[in-house]
Each structure stands twice: as C-alpha cells, then as structure tokens.
Simulated scan of single mutants.
Amino acid sequence: MDIPSEPAVAERRILPALPDADPKLGEIRWQRWEPALIMTHVDPSCSTCAFPGPLSTAIGKTYYTPAPSRVRVERSTRSRPSKWVTVQHRPYWCITHWAVRCPSCDEMHVYRREDWAEIHYWPPTTERALPPTNDNVLF
C-alpha cells in the first residue's frame, strides 16, 4: 500500500516590513511596491548585491492638519474695512515618505521627504546579497 506523500510546500518569501509610524510625523500609510523609474543619469543597480535593477519604491502618506488661516468674508467699502475670520481647513493625507528596496537582497532604506533623513534601514539578506561564484569562494 502506497503512503501518500505530503505535498511540497513552496518556499514563501517574506518582504521586510515598512515602519508603521514616524516619530516626528505620526502614522504612515504605505502604497504598494512599484518598480522604480529608469533614469539615464541614475544607476538603477543595487550597490550591495549588484542586482541590475530596477529597484522597488513605495510612497508613504501621513495625515496632515493644516494650520488655521484667515479668510476674507466681506470686501471693504469706503466706509467699512474688510471683514476677516479664522478658518480651520480640512485635514488630508499628504505624501511624506519614500522607501527604496532591492528585489534581490531586500536591503531597504526609508526616508522622510521633508528633510530627506533616513528613518529606517533593513539590512540585506546575507544569502541573497552575495553573488554566486563558480568555485564557491567568496573572495
């Protein structure tokens, strides 16, 4: 009697997690990873594993509440000055973060667009960061 063999489980690849929040700006909502645009003056390859590119990018948004501002509600006339009121504008989701990741070794950098400060780094996966060699010698 044949014993049924267990089905082969395909190896699942787990992408590194993007940060949920920025200490300065609060909660971040991320869009999907997309291939980076190819530009002639920028090298699209990964500096760690020499993946030829393109790298992957994602855009992050935070909830922005604008400061109250003054709005004129009545124009001035000869006998009366303009009438102004302070108005609070509606908050909205604003693009504030940018992430770049190598699809080959998963090295990832996350930047805050306001000052281009790096707020998160994920080191490359060691097994995939080293290019294969014919003689199995690293250096």
Rank of each mutant, 00 (worst) to 15 (best):
Y63N: 11
Y63E: 09
Y63R: 11
Y63L: 12
Y64N: 13
Y64W: 12
T65E: 03
T65P: 00
P66K: 13
P66L: 06
A67D: 13
A67C: 06
A67T: 03
A67W: 09
P68L: 02
S69D: 15
S69P: 01
S69M: 12
R70H: 09
R70W: 10
V71F: 08
V71E: 13
V71S: 03
V71N: 02
V71Q: 05
V71D: 06
R72A: 08
R72Y: 04
R72M: 15
R72D: 07
V73C: 08
V73F: 02
R75Q: 14
S76P: 07
T77H: 07
T77K: 14
T77N: 13
T77R: 15
T77Y: 05
R78C: 01
R78H: 04
R78Q: 10
S79E: 15
R80N: 12
R80C: 05
S82H: 14
S82M: 11
K83L: 14
K83G: 03
W84G: 00
W84Q: 02
V85I: 15
V85M: 07
T86R: 12
T86H: 03
T86I: 12
T86V: 14
V87Q: 13
Q88Y: 09
Q88R: 14
H89N: 04
H89R: 11
H89L: 07
H89V: 03
R90F: 03
R90C: 04
R90M: 07
R90S: 08
P91Y: 00
P91M: 09
W93G: 00
W93Q: 10
W93F: 13
W93Y: 13
W93N: 02
C94W: 12
C94Q: 15
C94F: 10
T96F: 00
H97Y: 04
H97M: 07
H97C: 01
H97N: 09
H97I: 06
W98E: 06
W98R: 13
W98A: 13
W98S: 11
V100G: 01
V100A: 07
V100N: 08
V100W: 01
V100I: 15
R101H: 00
R101M: 15
R101E: 15
R101P: 06
C102Q: 02
C102M: 11
P103Q: 07
S104Y: 02
S104K: 11
S104P: 00
C105A: 10
C105E: 11
D106W: 05
D106V: 06
E107W: 12
M108D: 02
M108R: 04
M108Q: 04
H109K: 12
H109W: 03
V110H: 06
V110M: 05
R112V: 08
R112G: 05
R113W: 10
R113I: 14
R113H: 08
E114V: 13
D115L: 05
D115S: 07
D115A: 02
W116M: 13
W116N: 12
W116H: 08
W116Q: 11
W116G: 01
A117Q: 08
A117E: 03
A117N: 07
A117C: 09
E118D: 00
I119P: 04
I119F: 01
I119Y: 06
H120R: 05
H120F: 08
H120E: 10
Y121Q: 07
Y121W: 09
Y121M: 07
